[in-house]
Amino acid sequence: MSHPSSHPSSQPSSATPRPRDFSALAAYGWDTAWEAAYDDACARPATAGPDPVPGRVVRVDRGQCDLVTPLGTLRADTEFVVPRDPLRVVCTGDWAVVDATGNPPYVRALLPRRTAFVRSTSSKRSEGQVLAANVEHALIAVSLAAEVDLGRIERFLSLAWSSGAQPVLVLTKADLVPDETTRSHLLADAATSAPGVPVLAVSAETGEGVDELAAAVAGGTTALLGQSGAGKSTLANALLGRAAQTVRTVRDRDHKGRHTTTTRNLLPLPAERGGGVLIDTPGLRGVGLWDAEDGLGHTFAEIEELAADCRFADCAHVAEPGCAVLAAVESGTLPERRLDSYRKLLRENARLAARTDARLRAEQHREAKQRQALGRHMMERKRGPRRRS
């Protein structure tokens, strides 16, 4: 594979102006703001060149990507834009400046992202991984065919809120829970774990809820996320109105799915349902938080509201006097499970941040010592003054 700098087309030329009819991109989310960002990128010396065109990444595969452009769909190299920052690698959903005359075509630059769905990797280097870019809606698919894991829902929602997208919680395979009372309880539990988030029960098998879901995400870019076996591919086909994605059955013994979708694909939604595009993603086994403090604030909004009434501004909601959060748990208005999940995700997010920030590590060490001192003080108060022999 030749490096882009070796392409004859990479030398600046003004022989032919770049095409200005970008109407073919409108169905993929192109608007005047993206056009302004594209013009700005083309004006930079590092990006300037002959006949660059805008394109949206619909698939990434081993150093190459497929993009939809005004010239049609192109397969392009991404070698020229390999950054040191793993969060800046080319990702499905990105808008890019493309040299269509290169041999092969190649991506010159990425346009600034509006949103990015990022998770931490399992690497000890504390790297983040971008799952999808420039997304307006994040559909979190959770199967009703197995026991609903509320903690996992909260984890997904925290990442979705942190991305800048509006999450929508989709309880799939609703036809497998025909009992209305049972279904109502499941919906209520899910809604408790997802304040401010639409919660929809959907069955791609019967069509229940599909039209409502399509209306909720019409016109924008939607990322479909969830574990393997959640019915994402089946749901994607229902929204697309065609069998675009391969569907496989889950294992009977544990209801776990097999990885049907292996790449992130951006697919246009039907115009008759309002249009927009859908990014279907592979099933996620692990969902590590990444810079999710704001997302946690949204996901646990009721705890954040209660915390405003705590006696101490830095209340950790553990044993402090005058803690409004603990009072809500004792009164039964806040489920203890919610507080436990909140604490767990806060600790995880803080640990990840500390691994990449020496200053935060020092602060956490100091705060840990203060909490230990507070704990000893509270224990001494409970035991009462020591008697001298």
Rank of each mutant, 00 (worst) to 15 (best):
L345Q: 14
S162H: 10
G102T: 13
M379D: 11
E180C: 09
G49C: 06
F22E: 04
G72A: 02
P104K: 09
V177Y: 04
D77P: 03
G55Y: 12
D94Y: 01
R273S: 03
A174I: 09
Q245C: 15
L150H: 05
M378I: 15
D39S: 13
R251Q: 06
R311H: 14
G220I: 09
A324S: 12
R108K: 10
A327C: 11
G295Q: 01
R376P: 06
V98H: 04
R311S: 10
R113Y: 05
C65F: 13
F80M: 07
T115D: 02
L159F: 00
I153L: 06
W34I: 05
D314K: 10
A141S: 07
P198Q: 02
F300Y: 14
R44K: 15
H298K: 12
V177G: 06
T206W: 04
A27L: 00
D175E: 11
A214Q: 01
R84G: 05
D51V: 10
D31P: 06
V142M: 03
L171K: 09
L67C: 15
A141H: 02
L267V: 15
R253I: 09
L240M: 07
V89Q: 12
R388Y: 00
G283W: 01
A316T: 15
C91N: 02
L278Y: 02
V250Q: 00
L176S: 08
L339R: 09
S14A: 14
D99H: 08
V217D: 01
D291F: 00
D252H: 05
H185S: 09
K124F: 06
A116V: 11
A133L: 01
L326Q: 14
L240P: 05
P52T: 04
R125N: 07
S233T: 02
S331V: 06
N265D: 14
A165E: 10
R383I: 08
